[in-house]
Each structure stands twice: as C-alpha cells, then as structure tokens.
Design a protein around this nucleic acid. Structure first.
Length: 491
RNA sequence: GCGGUCAUGGUCUAGUUUGGUUAUGACAUGGGCUUCCCAAGCCUAUAACCCGGGUUCAAAUCCCGGUGACCGCACCA
C-alpha cells in the first residue's frame, strides 16, 4: 500500500489548480487564507452535493443558508463573548505570552478563572509575584484574546462579528423553521457555509484556516426520547470504529449500544450515517475512528463528544466534531433574546426545550483527506500519478480526445464534446501525444477518457478508457450518456 | 504568539560563503512537425531572484525591518 504524503498532495494542488495561497502576488498576504482553483471548486461542490444526497436528503433534513455577519448578542448568548475569550499576559522583557489563568493556577494552586476580570488576574499575578518562566522578566498588562473577527456595521460601526461557526444561524432560526416547516422532533437542520476564526497559528494549508467551510447538521431532539429512533434499523449493522485514543474496536451500531459504548440510538444513528457518507467519499474508513473525547478535551457545551478522525501523513486529522450540546444553545438564546424557544413535542404532547446533537464537518480538511487517500503512484507504469477519485467527486468526469488532429477526427471529437458537456464535466484535449493526455487527465482524477479514432468515422463507436486499470472498451456514441450516468450512480 | 530553519519561472533547483557579462538545469506549459493508443522524437515560444529600506560605482548575493512557508512548543468553542 503506497501512502501519499503532505508534500506530494501540496505539489499536485499547486500545479494542477486545486488550491493555492490567497493574495499571493502581495507580500503582505496574511497566513491562513487559501483559495480553491478550478479543479478544487469542482471537487468541493461535488463533495457538498454528496453530503446533501447522503445526509440531508437521506434523512429529510432542512437546509438553510445563513448570514456570515451576526450581531453581538448572538455571541453573548452563545458564550463566545465574555466567558470564552482567553486572558493573555505578555512578558515585557522577552515578549513570550501565556494563558494567564492557566499559568496562575499551575504556579500557585490558587484557581484563576478564564472569566475573571483583567484587574483581578493582574492582582493575582502581583500577589504571588509571578514572573516570566523563560527569562524571569516582569509581566505587562493582561489582555483578552478573542478568536472572532470583529466587524463594524454602518457609519456608527455597530459591533458585530463574522461567525466562528455556522451553527449559530441554525439556532437563531430554529423557532421560525419549526413553526413554518411543520417541524416535529427530532428535527435536523443543515447548513454549508464559511466560518471565520482568528487562529493564532494557521498552518498546513487547508488543515488550519482562518476562513473555512463547514457543513453542519444540528439535530433538535427531545432528551427523553433519544432511544425512539425507528430509522435506526437502517444502520444497525453499520460498523463503527470506536476509540478511546489508544486502541480501536470495530462494532456494529447495534453492538455499540448494547455494550454501552455509545449512549443512545439517536447519537449512534447519526454516527453511522456519517461513516456511510465518508465511505462514499473514497476515504479509507479502515483508517478512520470515532474518538470518544475525555472530559477535559470536550468543548464547554458538550456532554458527549466523538471526533471523527482520519489517519493521514500528518497524523490523525479531525474531520467532524460530533457533540451532544444538550440545551446549552437554545437556553442561551432564549435568555438573551427573551424569546420562548420551547416547542410542542407532538409525540408526548408536552412542551420541551429541545436538546441538540451536532455533526460539525470541516469541508476543507475533508477535501485534503480525500486527495491524500486517493493519491496513487502507479509503479508498474512509469510512476504515473493517479488520483483515484470517485466519479461523482472528480473535477472532470471524462476527457474527450481525438487520436490525431487530421482526417476529421478532431471535428468529430468536438461534436461529441458539445453533446455531452451540458450534462457532464467534460474536457476536450487535442494537444500532444495520446499518452501524455491520458496522464494529465488521471492526475486530476478523471475516471474516463473517450478516444476518437478512424473506426469512429466509420461506425460511430469510440473507445472509453478506465483511469485505474488503463483498460479500454469500445462503445457506441449514442450509448455514452447512459454509460456516464451509470458511472455517476444515477439511474 | 515563542524558538529554529528557509524564501530564485507553474514545480523542483544551480548560483549567495568571496557582490561584477545576457541568472543554471530539469520537469511542466503554449505553438508547429510527426504519429491512430499510453509521459517518445524534432523545431519553437512563454516564464523567476518574496516585499520595503540601507551599504556600494555595482546587490539574487552584504546589513536592517516586514511578510510567508516548514519543524517543534503553546493554542485549537
């Protein structure tokens, strides 16, 4: 088994237009911003379409598309402002900075809290005469580091923020959606979009961005009915790879519950849907795991948390955070907005403030993981580089190649292209040797190449070449649309 | 954010120590010739010294500042 590494994927991405640094012609371009090129956009869009098919449509979720700029109150309610800014203290001599609360607690045993006022923290530092552990220099003022990007709205520059996670729009829209979309619990609401976090140290291209895509699903449920899940039958035999961080065990969804490895049918059902989805992306799910987070790793709002992680050349990579957020979010928004966000659960005829189970997917990281898992160097054939992407994720589905540019082969090929290009992502190429053109196509993951030769001119047949096996078969031109639809898994 | 290493065409790289002609080579890419089937060959073209300042007759090369990348630490709602 040949395992691709980060550098090879990076090189391919740069050379072939998958992704590249933002604003790269300017020297002041900040880190943590990357753009998708033509190949990357196709792949990302198709990934999102697969997510819609396998999760949103399969489960009957509601999809929304919310705003990226949201008012300050939203983040007061969510806890992003106030409680969850980090107090930072900087050494005046060497410039090293530290998390003030952690440093104080660690050094003195006196518990300092994140949410303490700056003066209180400063007083504690003074009281214990704490100094910089690196150079013994004196500490300066205590400041707050908030990962959110502030935005000023209108001439008065009213305080607002770029959302640090897409889910907050789902929470604030929940009441209207439940009412107008005839909602019943459990109700799943999904959203794809950009989020923004002012990371201290963005790194590794798509893996740690300041502006990034998320695909989030929030399942609103009645906490008393987490085991009433008829749909669970569909996934009871799906294998989950569960891990505590060291060992991994394979169990079916059904076994996971009976052995108490997962808490209830609702959570287990969605974990299983997620594995089935990732299996279809071409990621090797044998190199994945659900890591059950320990108490101190969990986010502030989560009572149960599983990270879906995939093994890559840069280690285990977290692709999806699965958190049981309880009623943390709706309760916060209800209090801050002074709205009643309880709904009637028709099954029990009782009012309930729903709990939330969330699947928060990182799209950019998923794209990277797919590229790495699909990257293959074929040692048998001059080390040709092949991206073994699933047809429905490939930027180009089919290359259309006249064997030569004479005897009318090129006109015939253009004609076939113009017939297919409205229904499929095609790529017409007549330049260079046929082998060269095949190699270029397979490097960006194109699963098929149609070749037009002299026989085509006589009997309207073409050869269709398969990327992975390099085998060719001859089929009639009129059969091409059906052939390609089948390859995409359509009827 | 801290420390270390580094920055030359689309990609990889020579040249920097010791400043001095037209910045090396490969791959990739465009055009042409050839060729009905797997990176062939021939001709040809395009294309780079991260940004700003300084030293100097002269800077890719030396100095200062900035930005970015990689590796560790810290952080990661």
């Amino acid at each position: 088994m040949m395992v691709a590494n980060y550098d090879e994927v990076m090189k391919l991405a740069l050379e072939r237009g998958f992704y590249f640094p933002s604003c790269e012609i300017y020297s002041d371009a900040p880190a943590g911003f990357w753009e998708y090129g033509p190949r990357g956009v196709h792949m990302k869009n198709k990934f999102i379409e697969l997510w819609r098919r396998e999760l949103v449509r399969r489960d009957g979720m509601l999809e929304i598309d919310g705003c990226q700029i949201m008012s300050k109150s939203v983040f007061v309610a969510s806890g992003h402002i106030g409680n969850f800014t980090d107090p930072v203290v900087k050494c005046t001599k060497c410039g090293s900075s530290f998390r003030a609360d952690r440093y104080i607690t660690e050094k003195t045993g006196e518990s300092a809290l994140e949410r303490m006022a700056e003066q209180e923290i400063k007083a504690l530092i003074k009281k214990h005469n704490l100094r910089c552990p690196n150079c013994n220099g004196e500490f300066g003022e205590v400041s707050r580091f908030n990962m959110m990007f502030p935005i000023g709205i209108g001439p008065a520059a009213e305080e607002a923020y770029l959302r640090p996670e897409t889910c907050q729009t789902i929470f604030v829209d929940f009441a209207r959606l439940f009412k107008t979309m005839r909602g019943r619990l459990p109700l799943s609401i999904a959203q794809v979009g950009k989020s923004f976090r002012n990371e201290i140290a963005p790194r590794q291209s798509l893996l740690r961005l300041r502006e990034f895509y998320q695909a989030e699903i929030e399942v609103f449920c009645n906490p008393d009915r987490l085991n009433e899940m008829p749909k669970f039958e569909e996934v009871k035999n799906t294998v989950l790879r569960l891990s505590d961080g060291s060992s991994i065990i394979d169990v079916t969804a059904e076994e996971a519950i009976s052995k108490g490895l997962t808490p209830n049918k609702l959570i287990t059902y969605y974990l299983a849907l997620l594995v089935e989805f990732y299996d279809k992306t071409g990621i090797d799910v044998k190199r994945s795991r659900f890591r059950n987070l320990s108490v101190d790793e969990k986010a502030f709002y989560a009572s149960v948390a599983f990270d879906f992680e995939v093994e890559t050349s840069v280690g285990w990579l977290e692709l999806v955070a699965c958190n049981y957020r309880s009623d943390y979010d709706l309760k916060g928004h209800a209090i801050t907005s002074k709205q009643n966000l309880e709904v009637l659960d028709s099954a029990t005829q009782s009012k309930v403030l729903p709990h939330v189970f969330e699947l928060s997917m990182g799209i950019d990281r998923s794209i990277y993981a797919i590229l790495e898992h699909c990257y293959y160097e074929d040692r048998e054939h001059e080390d040709r580089v092949v991206l073994r992407l699933k047809p429905y994720l490939a930027p180009i589905l089919v290359g259309i190649l006249p064997l030569m540019t004479k005897d009318g082969l090129d006109q015939k090929a253009r004609q076939i292209n113009s017939e297919l290009k409205y229904d499929f992502d095609t790529f017409y190429d007549e330049s260079g040797s046929i082998g060269r053109r095949y190699r270029r196509l397979e490097e960006i993951g194109t699963p098929f190449a149609i070749t037009i030769d002299k026989a085509t001119m006589q009997d309207d047949t073409v050869t269709i070449r398969h990327r992975d096996t390099m085998q060719q078969e001859r089929i009639n031109i009129s059969g091409l649309p059906q052939y390609l639809h089948r390859a995409l898994g359509r009827r």
